[in-house]
């Protein structure tokens, strides 16, 4: 039978609320009676801690550390004394931080967007489609999207831009300067980790000029805008293009998008 900690962990994971799980993964024989292997704490920002490691001071110290790790979105192993003392090794815990899934906002309710929603869902993104044209931005055309919004990109980004962070992505696929430029300018004023815009090299060059006219700086465009969007894998169809875009999102997030991307076969570094 599963109990209170699993049910609450499950609820948080399904709703996307941040939650941390502390698990005792090794314990010295002399303290195992008080703090058994697999003892747990469930950490939620602003809520009481569920569970116990068997010793109140240990609970207090580990909860404090686990909450700090959850706020930074990091997981890892830590060591403590039996009463939470630092620089001791009696108890090893694994702290797993479950943060909300990353967000992908796609501007442009086009056919390429439909394929991008499908691939991004495989990667665990919460996906929003945004387009100012109600005829195109419909739930029926994007059944897998978490949200379909009829709005102008700049207006929508004013609202959600402050919530975007390093793991999130914005893809601008409208093929229309009057939507592209405000979407890119809006995304640049957020902390979004990936920003890409679709278009041929010719479209890209014209758009670049318009972006400079709209107040973007050459430096920030070079640093942050992936345009033309995607890795050079020879994609032609919407589905292939979606894979190319998602591969680039992964590469940017893992810091491997600098310089030419190469096949693993042609490199020599570790693969994981």
């Amino acid at each position: 039978m599963s109990g209170e900690i699993f049910q609450e962990l499950r609820r948080c994971l399904l709703s996307g609320e941040p939650v941390g799980l502390v698990l005792v993964t090794r314990v010295a024989d002399e303290v195992a009676a008080l703090t058994p292997l697999a003892s747990k704490l469930l950490i939620r920002p602003g809520a009481t801690v569920l569970g116990s490691l068997g010793e109140p001071e240990l609970d207090r110290v580990v909860s404090r550390d686990a909450l700090a790790m959850l706020e930074r979105g990091v997981s890892g192993t830590r060591h403590y004394g039996s009463r939470g003392e630092a620089r001791r090794e009696e108890i090893e815990v694994f702290v797993e931080s479950f943060v909300s899934p990353p967000k992908l906002i796609i501007f442009g309710a086009v056919d390429f967007s439909r394929a991008l929603v499908e691939v991004a869902k495989v990667l665990g993104f919460v996906v929003t489609i945004c387009d100012a044209r109600p005829v195109f931005a419909t739930r029926a055309r994007f059944p897998l999207a978490d949200e379909v919004v009829v709005d102008w990109p700049d207006h929508y980004l004013e609202e959600v831009g402050p919530t975007l962070g390093a793991r999130d992505a914005v893809c601008v696929l409208t093929h229309d300067t009057k939507f592209d430029v405000p979407a890119i300018i809006g995304a640049l004023s957020s902390n979004v980790g990936y920003l890409g815009a679709m278009g041929s090299r010719r479209t890209h060059e014209k758009r670049w000029e318009r972006l400079l006219e709209a107040g973007a700086s050459e430096d920030e465009l070079r640093a942050r805008l992936m345009s033309p969007i995607g890795l050079d894998v020879g994609a032609r169809t919407p589905e292939e293009t979606a894979v190319s875009i998602c591969a680039e999102i992964i590469a940017v997030r893992s810091g491997r998008a600098k310089g030419a991307m190469s096949s693993l076969r042609d490199g020599s570094g570790p693969i994981h």
């Binding site: 599963s2 698990l23 993964t25 997981s75 890892g76 192993t77 694994f94 797993e96 570790p270 693969i271 994981h272």
Partner: peptide, 18 residues
């Protein structure tokens, strides 16, 4: 049900802790 969880990886490993 039993749950097995990766709690540490040394050198190369295909799945991360967690």
């Amino acid at each position: 049900v039993a749950i097995a969880r990766v709690i540490g990886v040394e050198q190369s490993g295909p799945r991360d802790p967690g």
